[in-house]
């Protein structure tokens, strides 16, 4: 009987070693929560400054003053960049903290693979959206970022916790949906980068990190 338990233990060791060596498992749920909160704050700032409907498809028809339009665009892009940087920093912070607690290194083969898998769709999406901005198609930037970010998550999910895959599908679906409802762009963005991240992060946190008391 004892021997049987020993063999079962061996099998579960093998399984965990396979998982640990091929997937980056130190991704913290809290980084999802913090990124979501930061994104919601950013959306709130944009909303207070320019209102909900500013980035709808009818936006260009209804606003005649091109000076205030480009000022609003600039304001929006600035906020978006600040949000992106703050979210990345907080995400890295919580993930590094989790890896340290697990006694594992952050920069290893699995994290390199994860980053590389995400980098290609993200870079393609980034360039695509910059060109949209150049062509003054800012309303398309909202669905565009959601779709490409979702694709990056799907591509990266092979190298980290499986739950990232579901988040990826949600982001892509939401991005596609947003294409049909351009009037709600700021809202879909707040849902995609804010609410979904928080839901995902909390799910992850309670599933993997909070040790059963």
């Amino acid at each position: 009987m004892n021997e049987s338990r020993e063999h079962l233990q061996t099998l579960s060791d093998i399984r965990s070693m396979m998982e640990r060596s091929s997937r980056f498992l130190s991704l913290s749920g809290l980084s999802g929560v913090s990124a979501g909160v930061i994104a919601l704050a950013g959306a709130a700032v944009v909303y207070m400054r320019v209102g909900l409907s500013s980035y709808s498809g009818s936006y260009y028809g209804s606003v005649g003053n091109s000076v205030s339009r480009s000022a609003a665009d600039q304001f929006f892009v600035t906020v978006a960049v600040v949000v992106l940087i703050a979210a990345l920093l907080s995400g890295v912070f919580f993930t590094v903290r989790k890896a340290r607690r697990q006694g594992q290194s952050v920069w290893n083969q699995t994290s390199r693979r994860l980053l590389w898998a995400m980098l290609v769709p993200l870079a393609a999406g980034g360039i695509f959206c910059l060109v949209l901005l150049l062509h003054n198609l800012i309303w398309l930037v909202f669905p565009g970022t959601l779709i490409f970010y979702g694709l990056a998550l799907l591509s990266g999910s092979r190298y980290t916790v499986r739950d990232v895959e579901s988040l990826g599908y949600c982001e892509v679906g939401l991005g596609l949906l947003a294409l049909f409802f351009p009037g709600y762009n700021l809202l879909t963005w707040a849902v995609g980068f804010g609410v979904l991240h928080i839901v995902y992060g909390l799910t992850m946190y309670y599933k993997y990190e909070r040790s059963p008391a």
Binding site: I14, S21, Q109
Partner: peptide, 15 residues
Amino acid sequence: RLNIMSVLMVNDVMS
């Protein structure tokens, strides 16, 4: 040794 083999079963190359 068992662990080394487990790792090499799912990763093509390891340094």
